[in-house]
């Protein structure tokens, strides 16, 4: 494992922990898109189908379990917790899951490395992860005023993506047979979706003002 990959995993982990801690301690999920969180839970559930069949490393298994448990706990908090669910911006979070899930599923049926259930689900999870942030970005755009934690959450997710791209470049030059177009292209698309948000995030940080997206 290289340093970019480890740093990428750690920022990914931190993004989820920041979100869970926010929800758990202030008992509020204001500004967080349930649609995005449900899509992430689906991403992890379909990608980690190999968790009990292919052992890669203890690190790999533990991280998979953490991502599954944390993503499903966040969804549980937002839907079921009797205090937290009241702070959910239901009327603003109107993005339709199916608009993202169906095209990703169709695409995965046609573009995949091998036409097996596990492989198609794995490819589907990559495509879906690339666009799963969209409901959250739409919600940010609508509410405009973003609290620090929500801003940090999206920032950490973006950092995770950027570090994964550096990891792929590093692996491409250091490992033989390391060519994965599906992963790279969907990963690149995902990272580009954050570019606009990053621009405003850095500006607000540089000028030391509260993050606000343009109307």
């Amino acid at each position: 494992m290289n340093i970019f990959r480890l740093a990428g995993d750690m920022t990914h982990l931190m993004s989820v922990i920041v979100l869970l801690l926010k929800i758990h301690t202030i008992k509020s999920c204001a500004g967080i898109s349930l649609k995005t969180q449900e899509l992430y839970a689906l991403v992890f559930a379909t990608r980690y189908l190999d968790i009990f069949t292919d052992f890669i490393s203890l690190y790999n298994t533990i991280m998979k379990l953490i991502f599954l448990a944390s993503s499903f706990s966040i969804v549980w908090y937002m839907r079921q917790h009797k205090i937290v669910r009241r702070s959910y911006d239901k009327d603003q979070d109107t993005f339709r899951h199916l608009f993202l899930i169906l095209p990703c599923l169709l695409l995965a049926l046609f573009i995949n490395e091998k036409f097996t259930f596990k492989e198609v689900m794995w490819t589907f999870s990559l495509f879906l992860e690339a666009v799963a942030i969209l409901p959250q970005l739409v919600l940010l755009q609508r509410t405009r005023n973003i609290d620090n934690l929500t801003g940090q959450y999206v920032f950490l997710l973006g950092a995770y993506r950027a570090l994964y791209i550096l990891n792929w470049i590093y692996r491409y030059f250091t490992e033989p047979h390391y060519v994965h177009w599906i992963t790279w292209i969907s990963g690149l698309v995902q990272t580009l979706l954050y570019a606009d948000f990053f621009y405003y995030y850095f500006n607000s940080w540089k000028n030391n003002v509260k993050l606000q997206l343009p109307a």
Binding site: D50, D54, I56, K64, N167, H180, T183
Partner: peptide
């Protein structure tokens, strides 16, 4: 080489 492929990523 396959077991050191992209599938070891999260």
């Amino acid at each position: 080489a396959e077991q050191f492929s992209v599938k070891d990523e999260l």
